[in-house]
Design a protein around this nucleic acid. Sequence first.
RNA 1: GCGGGUAUAGCUUAGUGGUAAAGCUCCAGCCUUCCAAGCUGGCUAUGAGGGUUCGAUUCCCUCUACCCGCUCCA
Length: 554
Amino acid sequence: MSTQPSVTRMEKIVSLCKRRGLIFQSSEIYGGLNGFWDYGPLGAELKRNVKELWWKSMTRLREDIVGLEATIIMHPDIWKASGHVDTFSDPMSTCRACKKLVRSDQVWDMLETVPWAETIRSLCPEGKADVDGLLKWAKNKGLRLVPDLALVKDPEGVLATLAKRSSEATSVQATFEILSTAAAEGPLSTPCPHCGGELTEPRPFNLMFKTYVGPAATEDDIAYLRPETAQAIFVQFKNVLETSRVKVPFGICQIGKAFRNEVTPRNFTFRSREFEQMELEFFIKPDEVIEAQHGKTASLSDGAASTDPQPNWGWEVWHMYWVEERFRWYDSIGLKRSSLEEYWQKPDELAHYARATVDILYKFPFGTQELEGIAARGNFDLSQHQKFSGKSMEYFDQEANVKYVPHVIEPSAGVDRLILALICEAYEEEEVTDDKGQKEVRTVLHFHPRVAPIKVGIFPLLKNRPELVQKAVEIRDLLRQHMNVFYDETGAIGRRYRRQDEAGTPFCVTVDFDSIGENGPELQDTVTLRHRDSMTQERVRIADLLPFLQSQIL
RNA sequence: GCGGGUAUAGCUUAGUGGUAAAGCUCCAGCCUUCCAAGCUGGCUAUGAGGGUUCGAUUCCCUCUACCCGCUCCA
């Protein structure tokens, strides 16, 4: 792999994506739109292949998962139940001094962990300030640690203000605020955890896209473009259950668009405002039910999760099983385990409803970033919808003879991130030496044949020989029924090979004079099969082409 | 949202207050018996909008997009 600076590598990848028609900027002729990207002809094929492989592995190759395709706009109460209306509108503040952006609701939590803030708190227990201590600190340590804190910038003035406003200093936090405020009167400010500077008033950051249902477009008609596809699965849980003859444990999966007004769309398509998700909600029995049935749940130390699913698996084993399944799937489309990282969220990072979350990350040129999260969510979501809708989400388990709200394991992947990872992983600038000893760069996308946008390039060796062209066209028409092929007769054969290298086409077939029997009947109806990665060629019979190619792409 | 940078053809880059240059790519043709060959011809650009000026791609302002930080977790 390349050793060039990562920025350059990413820029080259972006450039290639445009040049070969993988990814374009949305609305480009109008100047583009921040956070939106389009897929060109090659990108559309690539993305389609990836989604179909996921869908096939989830639904068709399994007995225990069914599919769903829900609408993007749903009843707005869904997002109240899911918590998105609250959690997706974080108030944010900017520090006037260091310009950093912080979540207003997390400032005091952050200040709990900062040493300089700890010092201040210890100097004003219950709000009663140790004036001498503060003065000394402000003129020594404070000067080094937080030069932008009001107390540090003007110790005497701020302490005088504190004395004047002592009636307000009723708690550690209130005193802290007074010590962070430069003005002698007026509203108190909150200190920036990074530098002690003043933070701006909290500004609401609304991450959900709003729209109106109905032409009247009044406040009562507000709805949201879904910020994730998962909620639709929970909302349709009962319908699927009653129509699909499924039994817990089982899953419902969905692929679809989701929308988030990201604060900072960045890193090419990595964080987009319109993006696509592939999500599975896999419903399992609560551990208590397993214990009642089997005495205890299987534990990870028994080697569970590496076998096929067993009836005594509790949530921990199911969670691990899905982590492993997802790694296996990534491997099957060309993302080796060694290219990925696994990150177990620490207890304090977990969402309040999550019991465990594992992130699968890819080492992008711009940093190691998340592709998929696999969360054990308990029964939070179904319970929320039960509460908000007033409809029962309970499942009657005939085996255990009990009713319960199932728990869930949620593998949730970003399609567009995965596409970008596949491109980054596949990209290589290879130095090759030609016949004359000249060194040149060959740009190749080493896509796995399963995801490659074009599976095979088909060329007549020369375009001015009708027999060659005719044979090549016949092969094209034979293969195109089964896969995406690309026919090309222009320019020199080497140029055509290199073009396909850049498009990531794993195989090329060339019809030459042997193919039409000019050099003896034993070579008639054979062609050259050229392999992208090794650039080697072999002679194969036309009749063997289709079975060979299918074995590579299925 | 804040701060810093960038914007010239499909791509990579020149350049100037007065006609915008090149390489690669692409298209057409000739030639060509397996790895970006050669020859001929062709298409295509100053991100958008204002201003200063006789005249702006160049100077000034605004906007937009992209890149880098703050933030983020599909």
